[in-house]
């Protein structure tokens, strides 16, 4: 087994250093070493989106990114979406619209939807569906998720 690698990165606005094995994904390090368990593991091969995080503002599946690749990057996880002032409008609208049932996919959806709204403040329903097609939800049939994102976009435009 090769030695551990030292990585310096930024997570949710704070500088973070960690040691990892070259074979570890950033998902594993976030969850098992940094105690950021809000990012969920559903498939570990990039098909379900439960582990969506933002890297420099773009959505990626954390299970497909090696931990060493985080060097020098800016990461945002679900734990960094709310602020001291309160919930992000997406989080508030997910609650109001009952857009979660079991909740395991919810962090991934909120993170992915945040990336969408950060770049496109007024997406169409079709655009929302296309953007979130990499995130699987087995409970809701997506109806209330799409509505929550639409409503969050409206709330953020005000």
């Amino acid at each position: 087994m090769p030695g551990k690698v030292h990585v310096t990165t930024t997570i949710n606005g704070e500088s973070v250093e960690f040691l990892c094995e070259p074979r570890q994904t950033i998902l594993e390090v976030l969850r098992d070493q940094l105690d950021l368990t809000g990012t969920k593991e559903g498939c570990s091969n990039g098909n379900c989106g439960a582990c969506s995080i933002l890297v420099n503002g773009g959505v990626i599946d954390a299970c497909l990114m090696m931990a060493v690749e985080a060097e020098g990057e800016e990461l945002t996880t679900i734990e960094g979406v709310a602020s001291a002032e309160g919930l992000h409008p997406l989080q508030q609208k997910f609650l109001e619209h009952a857009a979660l049932q079991c909740g395991i996919c919810t962090p991934g959806f909120i993170v992915a939807a945040k990336a969408l709204l950060d770049n496109e403040p007024t997406p169409s329903e079709e655009r929302i569906r296309l953007y979130l097609a990499g995130n699987l939800c087995r409970c809701t049939g997506y109806d209330k998720i799409v509505r929550a994102v639409q409503d969050a976009a409206s709330a953020m435009a005000e």
């Binding site: 368990t37 969920k40 679900i78 919930l87 009952a98 909740g103």
Partner: peptide
């Protein structure tokens, strides 16, 4: 009525603990 669920906030901020989150 349609109150916000009691466990909702924990689930939208990533704080809710699922089985695999145990350490």
């Amino acid at each position: 009525t349609r109150p916000i669920r009691h466990d909702g906030v924990d689930k939208v901020v990533g704080r809710a603990k699922y089985g695999a989150d145990i350490d």
